[in-house]
């Protein structure tokens, strides 16, 4: 962690981990559109399996916090490397906006995560460990459906996922570059794959939010 390259590699590795988590998260959530029973079954397993709860969940929280704190630290260091700025600078001529503003897209996703965690994770922790409510394998779909019933949630989820897409558009291919994977043969395909991933994952989450909002029995 002492050198710039070590930090860069660790940032990429935590990024890979979080991208894998996003794929897994979407795979489970999409079940809520396909079958409420299936969604309940998988959610209950995820919520009560001790390996997931006491090993995987803390690893995920650590990975997320590491990515977040390291990202902010690197941004601080990078800003410090050029105290005197240019009078006239045209960064758009040589690099895409998404690559230069990972901190903006990242902080927006973080702000959303606070809301998202209080919506679902804090509720789960309260249900299981504070209120000590009994196991109910049938409650998850209804809770999700209810939470997605508000227009404000739909708007926030949509905006947050657009920023997630912007973050991933650079983050995916940048992670591979950071761990040393860049060659003429495979990188163009990898970049295309990254663009597909960066669009499809957030689009999937937006679709789920829209599905639940428009299927409410108001």
């Amino acid at each position: 962690m002492k050198s710039s390259i070590s930090r860069k590699i660790l940032m990429a590795l935590s990024g890979f981990f979080l991208m894998f988590f996003l794929l897994q998260h979407l795979s489970i959530n999409i079940l809520s559109v396909i079958s409420p029973d299936m969604f309940n079954e998988v959610s209950h397993f995820m919520g009560y399996n001790p390996i997931i709860q006491f090993i995987m969940q803390p690893i995920l929280i650590f990975g997320l916090l590491f990515h977040l704190i390291m990202g902010m630290y690197l941004e601080y260091q990078n800003n410090k490397a050029r105290i005197k700025k240019y009078v006239n600078n045209k960064p758009n001529t040589n690099s895409p906006w998404v690559s230069r503003n990972m901190i903006i897209s990242g902080i927006t996703v973080l702000a959303f995560l606070i809301l998202h965690m209080s919506d679902f994770w804090a509720h789960e922790m309260n249900y299981k460990y504070i209120a000590g409510s009994p196991e109910d394998p049938t409650r998850y779909w209804e809770e999700l459906h209810h939470e997605m019933g508000e227009m404000s949630h739909l708007i926030i989820y949509t905006i947050a996922n657009i920023f997630l897409a912007l973050h991933l558009l650079h983050g995916f291919q940048s992670s591979f570059q950071s761990v040393g994977f860049n060659n003429n043969k495979y990188t163009p395909t990898l970049k295309k794959l990254g663009n597909v991933y960066a669009i499809l994952i957030p689009l999937g989450f937006i679709f789920i939010a829209f599905f639940h909002f428009f299927t409410q029995s108001h």
Partner: peptide
């Protein structure tokens, strides 16, 4: 070389490609 680069106060690469 990387150690010296860090000592000189250059920033970290974020792969913008600029």
């Amino acid at each position: 070389m990387v150690h010296q680069m860090d000592l000189e106060g250059f920033g970290n690469c974020t792969n913008t490609g600029a």
